[in-house]
């Protein structure tokens, strides 16, 4: 009963948040501001799912989040094209500390720790390390290589799921494969962020 009460209170709060966000969206006239407000609208929808508070909720938030981010990215692309902002040069980051050697050490530590953690979280940590590495060292276009690594790791991940489904006796192997697959996948995807600062400037 008390759980149900907590759920209802949480639901009420989320709906109030959604109502405020929608109200803001209605009175805001500037397109860019509306785009930013949309994120505020998006969060309550994830909140409603999160309120379930079960494993299922965790499994549902991820696709919901991905779809939401995809929509947001698509909309910002349209905004950029629509307002003719494409010609404007994007400035790369120029932070002195990052260009020193310290980030290299940090990135090695992060990668090692990430690999030990493995799985999704490990991928995140190690990915952060790779981001540091790219930011510190600059990069030549390794996109094809990264894409390939990402593709292969994804294939490993999917294959592991097939093992789970069809030959469950080998669950331990499948578990390791899935963990390594997702680790590589998340590392690669995050490292792409490190290489995405502006055009042509390393």
């Amino acid at each position: 009963m008390s759980m149900w009460q907590e759920y209802s209170i949480g639901l009420l709060l989320v709906f109030i948040a959604a109502a405020i966000a929608f109200f803001a969206l209605v009175i805001e006239k500037d397109d860019l501001h509306r785009l930013l407000l949309l994120d505020l609208v998006e969060v309550p929808s994830l909140g409603i799912i999160a309120l379930l508070g079960t494993d299922l909720a965790e499994a549902l938030i991820l696709p919901g989040l991905v779809v939401g981010i995809a929509e947001l990215l698509a909309l910002s692309q349209i905004y950029v094209t629509k307002e003719g902002l494409r010609e404007r040069k994007v400035q790369g980051l120029n932070i002195e500390v990052i260009q020193a050697d310290a980030p290299l050490i940090i990135s090695v530590l992060l990668i090692c720790y990430g690999v030990i953690l493995s799985g999704f979280t490990g991928g995140g940590v190690a990915g952060l390390g790779v981001v540091f590495y790219f930011m510190a060292r600059g990069h030549r276009e390794h996109f094809e290589l990264l894409e390939m690594a990402s593709g292969i790791s994804w294939a490993i991940w999917i294959f592991a799921f097939f093992v789970f489904m069809f030959i469950p006796e080998y669950w331990l192997l499948a578990l390791f494969m899935a963990a390594i697959g997702i680790l590589l996948k998340v590392i690669v995807k995050m490292s792409l962020v490190g290489t995405m600062w502006g055009d042509g400037n390393g």
């Binding site: 969206l25 949309l38 998006e42 929808s45 994830l46 379930l52 299922l56 909720a57 939401g68």
Partner: peptide, 26 residues
């Protein structure tokens, strides 16, 4: 492009009732 942008805003904000309904059913 303007029409597409406005439609996109509606579509994105419609994910709240959409996902909300699925979560509430669960």
């Amino acid at each position: 492009q303007n029409a597409a942008y406005q439609y996109g805003i509606v579509a994105l904000s419609a994910t709240v009732p959409l996902f909300g309904a699925a979560a509430l059913i669960a």
